[in-house]
């Protein structure tokens, strides 16, 4: 009996200190910000086009590879910070362009009502794009993992409680890697910029109007078709940006997007399909749950393998118990 109970007690019990929990929380929140960014793109696509893009993870993958290629080419000829910014911009531009072209060629006919059974068509055609992009990058980049160098450094300072070196930040006893920290900060900036765009600019409001009522939006002079293209392009761009900031944290292979896209599915369903606050909160929740779940899992050997399972279990539960999610509209 006692032995059975002991089985559920974490094996690395001695490791679980407040600092450890705090570190897990902080790492979870940083990764959660990036998940939020990606999910925001997916939610934008869903709210305007009414489809779930199954190629979202592949835009994430492309974004990472563009940064990698950009750094390979320019890291010796340009100053460091400039290379980083250039790489991010290039990733955003490329993914936006692919998204726009794909939307014009394959999704516009659906929006115009030229396709039978549009739901199936949307699933299959975005799935086809994912298939195509994965193997295209496999052909171009080869199957071996690539990893980009960190493209920004932390400013070095020592302020007692908070100490920073180029590669890490130390708050009290908690050490955070610079790669994740910078990735999280860029994601936060991008999220704020995106929220500003969505709520304060004319185009952003037009996007929201289209997602609420296409006919009414058309009446007040918004072209819903152009909004479709813009939404898909922006959604792809956000996924690409998420990949771009993470390529220096994880090693990159052509199928890296599969797990990433399943995470964004988890988040938009958890937050409620098409809800912007839902995708932000959902991303943070999933990031923290994954981080804590992995850190506190009883068997450390299996913990890494189960990392992606925690989110998926939440996902299955939400779909079964409350398919509208936290802030969702009705199905």
């Amino acid at each position: 009996m006692v032995a059975t109970l002991l089985h559920f007690v974490p094996a690395q019990m001695w490791l679980i200190t407040p600092e450890f929990i705090l570190r897990l929380l902080a790492e979870g929140l940083l990764i959660g910000l990036i998940y939020s960014l990606m999910a925001l793109g997916l939610t934008l696509i869903f709210s305007v086009l009414g489809i779930v893009s199954f190629s979202h993870g592949e835009f994430y993958m492309i974004g990472g590879y563009v940064v990698y290629l950009f750094l390979q080419k320019f890291q010796n000829s340009l100053p460091r910070a400039l290379t980083g910014i250039g790489a991010l911009l290039a990733a955003m531009l490329v993914t936006f362009a692919i998204g726009v072209v794909f939307e014009r060629l394959f999704l516009q006919p659906m929006a115009r009502g030229e396709v039978d059974r549009p739901n199936e068509y949307a699933i299959l055609t975005t799935f086809g794009l994912a298939f195509f992009l994965q193997y295209l990058m496999l052909g171009l980049m080869g199957p071996f993992p690539k990893k980009a160098r960190r493209f920004f450094d932390l400013p070095v300072f020592d302020a007692g409680l908070i100490q920073a070196t180029k590669a890490s930040l130390k708050i009290g006893n908690i050490t955070l890697g610079a790669g994740r920290l910078i990735a999280g900060l860029i994601a936060l900036l991008a999220l704020l910029a995106m929220l500003y765009f969505m709520f304060k600019t004319w185009t952003g409001r037009a996007l929201q109007a289209t997602s609420q009522d296409r006919q009414a939006a058309a009446v007040v002079g918004i072209n819903p078709m152009n909004m479709n293209t813009l939404a898909f392009g922006l959604g792809a761009m956000l996924a690409g940006l998420a990949g771009a900031v993470l390529v220096s944290v994880y090693s990159w292979v052509p199928w890296v997007g599969v797990i990433a896209s399943s995470k964004s599915f988890v988040i938009i369903v958890l937050g409620g399909m098409g809800s912007i606050p839902g995708s932000l909160l959902g991303g943070l929740i999933i990031g923290v749950v994954e981080s804590l779940g992995t850190g506190l899992f009883p068997d450390p050997v299996r913990a890494q393998a189960y990392r992606d399972v925690f989110g998926l279990v939440i996902f299955a539960l939400v779909l079964l118990v409350k398919p509208t999610g936290l802030f969702g509209r009705k199905l």
Binding site: I51, V52, F54, N119, E120, A122, I123, I259, S262, F265, V266, V269, R302, A305, Y306, D308, V309, L312, V313, F315, A316, L319, L320, P323, L331
Partner: peptide, 22 residues
């Protein structure tokens, strides 16, 4: 419905694969 079913089955398939792997 269609899209949600697709999402759910992807999650199920991935969970199963990861569990078999772990």
């Amino acid at each position: 419905r269609s899209t949600y079913l697709a999402l759910f089955t992807i999650a199920f398939a991935e969970i199963l694969r990861l569990v078999f792997k772990a």
